[in-house]
Write a protein that binds this DNA or RNA. Structure first.
Lengths: 249, 249
DNA sequence: GGTCAATAGATTTTCGAAAATCTGATTGCT
DNA sequence: AGCAATCAGATTTTCGAAAATCTATTGACC
């Protein structure tokens, strides 16, 4: 099994919190593959912790929908499928349409300034440091930009929902080999959304954001078709497991 | 501490799953009060389980937002406040507007039949068996009705979000003493929503559902004002001090 | 050959003790 | 008195062993 991040011990941080963060990023970045069985013994070895903190972290991830738990049969990384990809992206469009509208309506100077700053940092980050892999820094700035875009929405509930869906979408993006498709002009896309938002043009901002998500959806969906071993998981878990094990790890 | 449901052991059910269900209903029905401290020793006694299954259940509830966890300081029942009540109800309106619209657009005969059946069961249930307390059976049928209303929505993600918000709203309702305010004609309200949905009148169904939620909001908000110990954070005057200390600076 | 029960090994789940951390009170110093 | 350091009790957090459960295989029987 591939090695994980160094244990980076933060003062006062409990073990289950560190393990939670590590497993989550390992799932989002597909170091733990969809539908992969999560044996406690293996996780214990990998993250250097006892059963309790690991199970606690997994229970949280189960509530978030990142792993699934079958009673007395343990945990698995959540499966992926074409259907849930479409559900996910459609839900993102609906949720972000709400948060973005409210952010534009509520946003003050502080929001505008933070958004401009986030865009600037994103635009200066190169997307691929390795040609077949997304840059970690870019992903971070990308997330920060989308967070800044809706930060002025005054609903903590809607924002947390958006964040959770964003995580799941990122996993699908990580699964698709991004560089193979013609590279999008990401900077321009994000800039257009931002300009519409700053101009207070709700309709335009929403439709640009919708197209932004749909473009990602199309890319990932196409990539998923080329890897049928992923699109079948939900249907027959038993065979999927075998297929996964056969994959080059 | 008040006694809880009998342990009703279901075959093959793990302990943490049973404890999770019990704690959740105890929170929703306010047998565990908002902001109440949840010491492991007390929970261990109350639910008859060891530390592990209880902590695992609490971690899930923390992810759901039903309890909150402060590192090395343990768990508390999630606090209530006027602000989060409004956020919650507004979010419900937004989410249910989406699920209800999609249910009406997708719904077939099966959906219509199930909805009519759910309404009938609800209409035959008396709301209060005890004058100052909601009937458990009514709550169950009420939830089933609202679930049936949107069951034809084809997005598992949106449905699970709606369910989660419904739980949280129910806790606020349980907190307010329902019988004191003039009793609403609940049956008629639900019937109107259902008829609009069955007639395929999206606009009318959505606005009726919105008003339905807003009426609940007004009732609960008013009740919250009469109990100032709740309106900010605390569960009881005795705990107000505790809560003050726990407030983030 | 095929079906079913028994069994052994692996894995999950649960438990309670031990370690780490927090809280509140007390002590000693300026 | 005011304030910081110290200490004891309470609580959370973590650990690994023990119990419960599942899975795959073997062997008996039809």
């Amino acid at each position: 099994m591939e090695q994980t991040l160094p244990p980076t011990p933060i003062a006062g941080e409990t073990l289950h919190a560190r393990v939670l963060a590590q497993i989550r990023t390992d799932i989002v970045e597909c170091r733990l593959m969809p539908n992969e069985r999560l044996t406690l013994e293996a996780l214990r070895e990998r993250y250097g912790a006892g059963f309790s903190p690991i199970r606690e972290a997994l229970m949280r991830l189960a509530a978030e929908g990142m792993v699934c738990l079958e009673q007395n049969k343990g945990f698995r990384v959540a499966a992926v499928s074409r259907a849930s990809l479409f559900d996910l992206m459609r839900s993102r469009i609906e949720i972000e349409s709400i948060t973005l509208r409210r952010a534009i309506e509520n946003g003050g100077v502080g929001w505008e300034a933070d958004l401009l700053a986030a865009f600037h940092r994103l635009s200066k980050q190169s997307k691929h440091v390795h040609p077949d892999r997304l840059s970690t820094e870019w992903s971070k700035e990308h997330r920060t930009f989308h967070r800044a875009l809706v930060a002025a929405c005054d609903s903590p509930i809607m924002l947390s929902i958006q964040e959770s869906l964003f995580d799941k979408a990122e996993r699908y993006v990580a699964l698709s080999i991004v560089s193979k498709s013609p590279s999008r002009n990401d900077v321009a896309e994000h800039e257009q959304i931002m300009r519409a938002a700053l101009a207070g043009n709700v309709g335009r901002a929403l439709s640009l954001n919708c197209e932004h998500i749909e473009r990602t959806l199309n890319k990932v969906a196409k990539s998923l078709e080329n890897h049928p071993e992923f699109s079948e998981f939900a249907a027959s878990p038993a065979r999927a497991r075998e297929a996964l094990v056969a994959l080059p790890g």
